[in-house]
């Protein structure tokens, strides 16, 4: 593993630790519904401040279940990750191709 890859791995590890620590330390235990979304909590806060408030518009399409919703979130993440992977793969391939061409030109006897 190169030094660069090691640093990237350490950075990723730190991100993972930041996500896992709140769960391990039980930081959601004091809540009725631990680790709910902040947007849902904001909705609750709004109805606390203004009990009469009624949302005046509802989503045109709502995923029929939590499973479908998580599937769609996974699709979103997969689309993004796919494009990113394509980008870096393409770059790596191009760079290797260029290096190979340069090496071939250098090695070619009497090449121009």
């Amino acid at each position: 593993m190169s030094r660069n890859a090691k640093i990237n791995a350490l950075l990723l590890l730190a991100v993972a630790a930041l996500a896992v620590l709140p769960l391990v330390l039980g930081l959601g235990d004091h809540k009725e519904e631990p680790f709910a979304g902040a947007d849902a909590e904001a909705e609750t806060a709004i109805t606390e401040i203004e009990p009469d408030y009624e949302p005046w518009f509802s989503p045109l399409y709502e995923p029929p279940s939590g499973e479908i919703e998580s599937a769609l979130f996974a699709v979103q993440a997969a689309l993004g990750a796919g494009v990113l992977a394509y980008y870096f793969g393409l770059r790596r391939g191009r760079r290797q191709g260029e290096e190979r061409t340069a090496a071939a030109l250098r090695d070619a006897p009497g090449g121009d």
Partner: peptide, 24 residues
């Protein structure tokens, strides 16, 4: 440009737990 948009796509799909006991 596509990669930058893709990064936003990935990150805003990642709901992560936080110290407050909720997720964002």
């Amino acid at each position: 440009l596509g990669a930058s948009g893709a990064f936003t796509f990935v990150l805003s799909a990642l709901k992560l737990p936080s110290v407050t006991g909720s997720c964002s």
